[in-house]
Amino acid sequence: MARILNGIVAMCPNLGIGKDGNLPWHPTRLNEEFKYFRKMTATASVEGKQNVVIMGRKTWFSIPEKNRPLNNRINIVLSRQLKDPPHGAHHLAPDFISALRLINTELSERADQVWVIGGSSLYKELMESQGIRRLFVTQVLKQFPCDTFFPELSTDDYNLLPSFPGVPQGLQEENGIQYKFEVYESIVH
């Protein structure tokens, strides 16, 4: 059975997801939003297995060193330049397709859910790939300066789900910043 692939992202109203290698609202922290990210990406649904997080090289290096690798998850970094996994990463793959192949072969006994955590081009590949895709989007309801953006989300390709297990409903607020959690699922054409 083909895996459902998940993407998880927090974005501004203009689809901005980053600024200068940080989250757009940096240095403000959204601790509850971060706990949600950790819970979603680290909680395996199958006993004895671990979730996989796939990220680009820039996303890897944007994570504070003390937090790398993301614990309780198999960390795969994508890079065409690097020859070896960066210090702390579990695996290196040259591209998204190679990462998925690694998960379905060498890691198949250990891997549970697959989460794409950034950046932009990797999200775009995920969204354009075949099969069932879920996008866990935190809509930050305040605009911040951004230099990195999430791909346009087409309602022809994705439906907003009314609710999803484990995803808080309604408006959230931290440090004067309001946000809401949304889950989109790909429409199989």
Rank of each mutant, 00 (worst) to 15 (best):
L135Y: 04
R134K: 15
F61W: 11
M55I: 03
P94E: 05
G166R: 04
E32Y: 06
R80W: 05
N31V: 07
R110D: 11
P168T: 01
P151L: 02
S108I: 02
I76L: 02
N175P: 05
L78C: 04
F150W: 09
V116A: 02
M11Y: 05
M1F: 01
L161K: 07
Y123G: 06
Q143M: 14
L107S: 01
G21A: 07
K19I: 01
V52H: 09
K49W: 11
D20C: 04
L161V: 13
H26W: 15
E106Y: 12
P162E: 07
S98R: 01
M1G: 14
I74P: 01
K58G: 03
L107M: 04
N51F: 11
N31H: 13
S121A: 11
G16T: 05
A42E: 15
L153A: 11
R29Q: 15
P162C: 06
Q172P: 11
E47I: 01
D20G: 14
E152G: 06
G131A: 09
L122M: 07
T155M: 09
K19M: 13
Q139H: 15
M55W: 11
A93S: 15
P86A: 01
N31E: 14
E125W: 10
M127G: 03
F150K: 03
R110A: 04
F61Q: 09
E33Y: 02
F164M: 11
P145W: 11
R101M: 01
C12W: 10
P27L: 12
F164V: 00
N175R: 07
F181W: 07
I8E: 09
G176M: 02
N104R: 08
N72E: 09
I117H: 06
M11G: 02
E32D: 08
L141Q: 15
V53S: 00
V188W: 03
R57D: 01
L23I: 14
T43Q: 13
R133W: 03
G88S: 00
H26S: 15
V188I: 15
H91V: 00
Q139A: 15
Q169D: 10
C146D: 06
T155D: 15
V116P: 00
N71D: 10
F181Q: 12
G21S: 13
T59H: 07
W25D: 07
V9I: 13
P165T: 08
G21C: 10
E47G: 00
K35C: 03
M1Q: 10
I17C: 08
F61M: 05
E152A: 13
M40P: 03
A111R: 07
L161A: 08
S108D: 02
P86Q: 06
N22D: 14
C12T: 11
N159L: 15
V167F: 14
E185G: 00
F136R: 00
A2W: 03
F37P: 11
L122G: 06
P69M: 06
K180H: 03
K66A: 02
N31K: 14
Y123C: 13
N67A: 06
K19E: 08
